[in-house]
Nucleic acid binder design. Sequence first.
DNA 1: GGAGTTGTTTAGGA
DNA 2: TTCCTAAACAACTC
Length: 265
Amino acid sequence: MPELAEVEFFRRRWDVGVGQKIAAVTLHSEKRIFRGNDFTTLTRVLPDARLLASEARGKQMLFRFSHDAWLGLHLGMTGELRHEPAEFSAGKHDHLVLAQARQSLVFSDPRLFGRVLFHYGASVPEWWSSLPSALTSDAFTLERMQAFLQRRARSPLKGVLLQQEFFIGIGNWMADEILWRAKLHPSRAAGQLTDEESRTIWKAVRFVCEGALRIVSKDYSDPPPSWLFRHRWEKGGRCPKDGSELGRATIGGRTTAWCAKCQPR
DNA sequence: GGAGTTGTTTAGGA
DNA sequence: TTCCTAAACAACTC
């Protein structure tokens, strides 16, 4: 589920607990989402710490607590955040529960592709500060994007758009949406675009990121029917622009939908 | 029962 | 060396 806007939606779900202390922490520490963590410090510091603030960048979230505690969360393929009553008891897939006086903050992830990163220190953890800048920020310039496409010149556009080291937050559906709007075939090599084409893709990245954040992160609504999103998984789905049947294939390692008419090779 | 899933990491080939 | 692909991870649905 979670790409850029879905992650932002889930992050806000924990806003209800901002300003309040953690009373108890329950976790399934043996699960792989916790790998690499210092549990001794985590279980000593986090209970009794107060949730101060949070932010999302791409598909990564950072929760800041008092007592120099920081929690990074990644939702993987099936993770989600929610809140439950204070005396909630964790279900099978509820791998991290932060109990507060008024509610419990829950991180669940059936498929365990997510990640929890705990950091103890006065300043922002390195794994957060080293993330690339947001695609909706001024740092996402056409020139920087073109340079990245050239470094991945022989890869299909679809695969390059999924690379989080630059296109932070873009996932499978957003990548298809961007290429459909830019009228570019997902198999086109990243290094073979004209200036006009790369400008179009740059604009489409902006449009899809901003639109998804506006529409999806508010209340998890779907984008409108004019977006490819609404048709890409339908059986016999059709292009919302010209009504022709969508193609489907594995490109860049992921299932990809496109319109053969709008997006010629 | 088999295939497929909106993500990342890693091994190994090119 | 650098780039690129496929498999692995794990649980669930159709």
